[in-house]
Simulated assay, not measured.
Amino acid sequence: MRITVTTKNGKHYGTVHAADRVVYATPGYFTEGMALADVKCWLAFHGGNMEEREPRSIRFETVKCGRCEGMGRRTDRPDWAPNHKGICYRCHGDGTVLTAAGYRAQQAYIAERDAALNTTWGELEDGEAFWYDGKCYAKGQHPWLILFDKTTVRRHNGPVCRAIWKDIARRYKGAELVY
């Protein structure tokens, strides 16, 4: 196993690599020592048992927003800021934007996910989990949620989603798996 610590946008990230993939990535830390300590702690706890692990999510490559300098707010236009609460509309207040490679990977993931998991409300079985409007529901469990039979929803299927994550991370440079 290989440990690396990288710096991006002023924060330090530690990663553990096993063979050709990342098995653990830390959140952003203010110091390199904190990122390294997190990685070493994770290795001590999890040992060499990496091959059975499934990814928790997928991360797309980002960089610091050039419009707000990574602050998420614009202060260069005093006449504009009060009307828009100062939020930068390029990064939507996040401070980061996708790189070109990250954007291509994200669009490929969305297309592949929607092709595999999109269905209509009428095709779902009672009790089947699905995503609608950014929230997860189970059909028949929420009487206030009334949808037309032709309404598009996305099935909630963890194994299929993880397989898509792995495929996208393997094919695209701007995506990596988070374990």
Rank of each mutant, 00 (worst) to 15 (best):
A35G: 05
G48E: 13
V39I: 10
G48L: 08
L43V: 04
G28Q: 02
I3P: 06
H12F: 10
T62G: 04
K40W: 01
G66P: 06
A37L: 10
E61L: 05
G10L: 06
E51H: 14
E54N: 09
C68Y: 03
T15V: 08
V5N: 01
R59A: 10
C65L: 03
K64Y: 04
A35Q: 06
R2S: 10
M50G: 13
T62S: 08
A37N: 10
T4L: 13
F30T: 09
D20M: 11
K11Q: 12
H12N: 05
A35I: 08
L43R: 01
G48H: 04
M34L: 12
Y29I: 01
S57A: 15
M50K: 02
D38A: 07
A25L: 07
V16F: 02
P55R: 03
G10W: 00
W42K: 03
G14M: 02
T7E: 13
V23Q: 02
T15R: 15
A44S: 12
F30N: 14
E52W: 11
H17Y: 14
E69F: 14
A35L: 01
V22H: 07
T15A: 14
I58L: 05
E54G: 08
E54R: 13
G14H: 01
Y24G: 04
V63G: 04
D20A: 13
T6R: 13
V23L: 10
E54W: 00
Y24E: 06
C41Q: 15
R56V: 11
I3H: 04
R2E: 09
H46V: 07
C68N: 03
M1N: 13
V23C: 02
G66M: 11
L36E: 07
H46S: 01
M34W: 07
A25G: 14
G48S: 14
G14Q: 03
T62F: 00
E51N: 14
Y13N: 04
V5T: 07
I3V: 11
F60T: 04
T4R: 15
T62A: 01
V23G: 04
H17S: 04
P55V: 06
G66K: 07
C68R: 09
R67W: 09
G70Y: 07
G66E: 10
G33V: 03
K11P: 05
R53W: 15
M50R: 09
